[in-house]
Amino acid sequence: MTAGLRVELLRLRSRRAVLLLVLLGLLGCVLLIGFAVTDAVPPSAAELASAKAQVDQQLADPEFQQMLTECRTAVTAGGNSQFPADLDCDQMLPKAEYFVDWRAPDFVEQFRVLLLGITGILTLVFALAGVTFAGADWSSGSIGTQLLFESRRGRVFGSKLGAITLVALVIGAVGVLLAWGASYWMASKWGTTALIGNDPVTGAQVPLSRTDLVGRALRALALIGGGGAGGFALAMMFRSSLVAVGLVAGYGLVGEAVLRSVSSGVEPYLLSSRVAAFLDGQYLIYRYPNVCGTSGCEAEIIRISALQGGAYIGVLIVVVTVASLLLFRRRDVA
């Protein structure tokens, strides 16, 4: 198996399409980080001066001054329908930060966002790399030549699957480290590195541990590896890159939309919901009742955990891979 894996790694390295895809993927990651850094850079003196000028301009606006005066008068007099008694009128005063599109980078949030982007790019890249790696063997007919050198089809399949998954994991690890490093660098330079997250329902701040972030990184890595394995298994099953890509694109572009239109109850079972849950730790679906009561509309929250998301994706990849292997073992090769 090890010799087979080495051979498949050599073959994979020799495939220009795969190299190009990986380079494009890494370029995409670097660009994403570049955009994030651009957003994280604090505003320049000129931008701050411009913001201050806008504040001064608004303060000098007679309409604004009149509204401020009305607010203060109304609050002092016990409030009215427009300005309640407990309103802090000074909150209406413009501040320079309102006119500057910048938030101090927060390590946890920055890592979360970058990791989502990088995982999306690399999962797609390695799904396509897996597809083209297997598809090229079938379209060139070279799979038949390979079987004349190693007739144990399970080994051939396993070596190829191992090679594409291994490369996906290695490049995925590079992507994850880039996301981690860039997020930490930005947060330590211009923001905060405190490990604090937000509760998705209440919005309250909750403390996080380093393990939470490592778990998130490992899940991202698993998804990138799974993308490579799944793409490879699909192309081996259909013996065609085009069919495999068409199937995935068809599901992504049309399939989910059709399923959603058929029933709103299907959302927890869609692949996109499960992937989101797996990557982000959980995925919340707000389901509102058809008829609201007098006290308002209370949404039912359906929570999909990372474990549920991971189990779903794992079972899907295992089923496709096993089916692909069984077909490869049984069917004739031209």
Binding site: R6, V7, R15, S140, S142, G144, L148, F149, A334
Partner: peptide, 29 residues
């Protein structure tokens, strides 16, 4: 199988790589 060499129908190797690299890949297997 190690005692058998065969070319069935048309030659089918990897189109995007050199002749030498094609043989190297098969030799290493």
């Amino acid at each position: 199988l190690g005692r058998v060499g065969a070319v069935v129908e048309q030659p089918r190797l990897f189109p995007g790589i050199t002749g030498r690299r094609n043989l190297q890949v098969l030799a290493r297997s």
